[in-house]
Amino acid sequence: MTRTKPSRLSYLTTGIIKENPTLILMIGLCPTLATTTSARDALGMSAAASFVLILSNVVISLVRKFIQPSIRIPIFIIIISTFVTIIDYALQAYQPSLYRVLGVFVPLIVVNCIILGRAEAFAYNHGVFDSFLDGLGNSLGFTLLLVVMGSVREFFAAGTIFGKVVTPAWYRSAPMLFMIFPPGAFFLIGILKALVIKLKLDKG
C-alpha cells in the first residue's frame, strides 16, 4: 500500500478544525482560558500568537537543514523568543491599551505549546511553503476558538461583542458575570469540547 502525500490544501485545513490545536489536541490552553474575557482581547492574543507561529514555522523550516537534532530545541526556543520579544515591543509601542490587558501573556507565548509543537512536529521536517501553510492553518484554528470563546464570554458577562452592544439594557444592568471568571472559561471550553465530540460521533 502506498501512502499518498497529503495535499497542500490539507496542510492548511487540518489545523483549523480537524486537528484544531486547542480544541482537539488540547494544547495551548493557558492563553485560551486566560485571555478570552472579551472578544477584542482574544483577537489580540491570537493575532500576537499567530504572528509568532507563522514566522517561527517559516524560519525554522528555512534553516532546518543546518540544525543538528541534538540542539534543535534550544535553537527553536531562541527563534521563537526572538519573535515574541519583537511582538512584545511592537504592542507596547503601537497598541499600549491592548498590551496592558494581555500583560504577562505576551511573554508567555514563548512557551505556548502550539508554537513549539508545530516547530517540532511539522516545520523541522517540511518545506518552507508547507510550513507556512501549516502555521497559517493552526493560527486560524487557534484564532477561531479564541474569538468564539471571547465573544461568548463577553456576550454573557458584559452583554457586548467586540464592545458593541447586542443585548437590551435590562440584561446589561445585571449580566451573568460568571462567564468572565476562570470557572466560566473552564465550563465553556468543556461544553465546546463536548460539542466537537458529539459532531464527530454523529459523522461516524
Binding site: 540542539i71 531562541i78 527563534i79
Partner: peptide
C-alpha cells in the same frame, strides 16, 4: 550554529528595541 542563531537574534532584537524605544 548555536552561536550564529544567538548573534542573529541578538542583533535583530537590538534593532527592534532601538526602533520602538522612543515610541514606547
Amino acid at each position: 550554529s548555536l552561536l550564529i542563531t544567538c548573534l542573529v537574534a541578538g542583533f535583530a532584537l537590538a534593532e527592534v528595541f532601538a526602533m520602538t524605544k522612543p515610541k514606547i
